[in-house]
């Protein structure tokens, strides 16, 4: 998830990113931001925030739990907004999307 600091809503996006760092992938034990599962958080509409994300595998058995985690974390951070979560499979998630911190947590050298 890339945040361009010179854009409007960058502050909200950063707050959303911090909130989503509390959502952990239960199998890998790493947060979904560092795993690169969150592609974007659209904060352009003041009342609805849209999280666009993916999973490491289609039909991930913990997908439902992760989705709920995202909803809870975002609702806490933005209690006055509706949270919409869009699950997408394009682009397909791959290892290159993991951040350096995520790689370190996974023991990837």
């Amino acid at each position: 998830m890339k945040i361009e600091l010179n854009k409007a809503y960058a502050k909200e996006q950063m707050k959303a990113q911090l909130a989503l760092m509390q959502v952990i992938d239960p199998e890998l034990g790493v947060n979904i931001i560092d795993l690169g599962l969150v592609y974007n958080v659209d904060c352009s509409r003041s009342t609805i925030f849209v999280v666009t994300m993916t999973f490491s595998t289609p039909h991930c058995p913990l997908g439902d739990a992760i989705q709920r985690g995202v909803h809870h974390a975002m609702s806490h951070a933005f209690p006055d907004c509706l949270i919409q979560i869009d699950i997408v499979w394009e682009p397909e998630w791959n290892f290159d999307m993991i951040t350096e911190a995520g790689k370190e947590a996974l023991g990837i050298h």
Binding site: Q22, V23, I24, P26, P61, L62, D64, A65, I66, R68, G69, V70, H71, H72, A73, H76
Partner: peptide, 11 residues
């Protein structure tokens, strides 16, 4: 885990 914690994940 899914049964016990799914509803409080992220909370």
């Amino acid at each position: 885990w899914n049964n016990r914690y799914k509803d409080v994940h992220g909370d």
